[in-house]
Design a protein around this nucleic acid. Structure first.
Lengths: 149, 149
DNA sequence: CTCAGTGCAAAGTCTTTGCACGATT
DNA sequence: AATCGTGCAAAGACTTTGCACTGAG
């Protein structure tokens, strides 16, 4: 039999946060969140807006910016900068930490995790008296397909 | 007795590159480069411009942008993004690779290097068929002084 | 019915660029 | 003298914000 306490769906988390803050659940917000979560991440605002507009062409960029900012504050999304001038977002729900391999030719982004690297990072920080809150590890290069060309 | 072949000074490197390309050595370029190298790095354009203007108040931001772009192309400077929306530069002359610890309270930036982390990164990349060209490892948190408060 | 949300356009940052004048080779 | 470089202002790219209207609770 299924466990009684299941992880809340992102939609439920969103709804709870909205209610707690007296914020409203709107058509636009629901649409943006569901597309954001369905697409899987590393999306920038342009991509998200384009997808959203396939369903509702009247949604504005400002609303997407505002919604993603809200999701970030609520801990549902993480903002990330890969240095191309576009803020990208990925889901923060039911995910543990991971880092990124980024193909500079085709733009492909691969996620990975490596506990030994994490431990070494902690050791380095400790040695310098730092308390690390978060970190960023990005490996830029060519994926196998692009290297083959 | 000193070695006959010494590492060229950054100024000499700059001058050689300029000559090779038929570019000119100007008062502004010399000033910006010497201040950039003397200050030690992790400077953004605002800080650099402010310092430069203490010596020559008429230097424009455009010139600083253009000069730093040039230095980056020549391999004398590296541009870096720490996520605050300001491009920062550090000297690339006579330096090997290193990563950064960044205090999110006071802005202090500490450099470190760790060969074991580098090896593990290479291993991860290899496992994914990636050829890594460069990488970025940044640990964000509180330095000992800011943590004490 | 009230207050938050949306769309639009304007404004804000940081950075780049067109142009005429100025400086280096 | 011929070019490249500079300063200034305008233009760009991305993001935020003011305002009046719309819509959720």
């Amino acid at each position: 039999m299924p466990h009684a306490v299941v992880t809340q769906s992102p939609e439920a988390i969103l709804q709870r946060h909205l209610q707690e803050r007296g914020l409203k659940q709107t058509r636009q917000r629901s649409l943006i969140v569901s597309i954001f979560l369905a697409t899987g991440g590393h999306l920038d605002v342009d991509q998200l807006l384009a997808t959203v507009r396939r369903t509702d062409p009247k949604v504005s960029a400002a609303t997407v910016y505002r919604t993603m900012k809200l999701l970030t504050e609520l801990g549902i999304a993480h903002a990330q900068q890969f240095g191309d001038g576009h803020t990208r977002y990925e889901s923060a729900v039911d995910r543990h930490h991971h880092d990124h391999l980024i193909c500079t030719v085709c733009g492909k982004i691969i996620e990975f995790e490596n506990d030994r690297i994490e431990s070494l990072q902690d050791a380095v920080a400790r040695r310098h008296g730092f308390t690390v809150v978060h970190h960023k590890l990005e490996l830029y290069g060519r994926c196998s397909e692009c290297a083959a060309r």
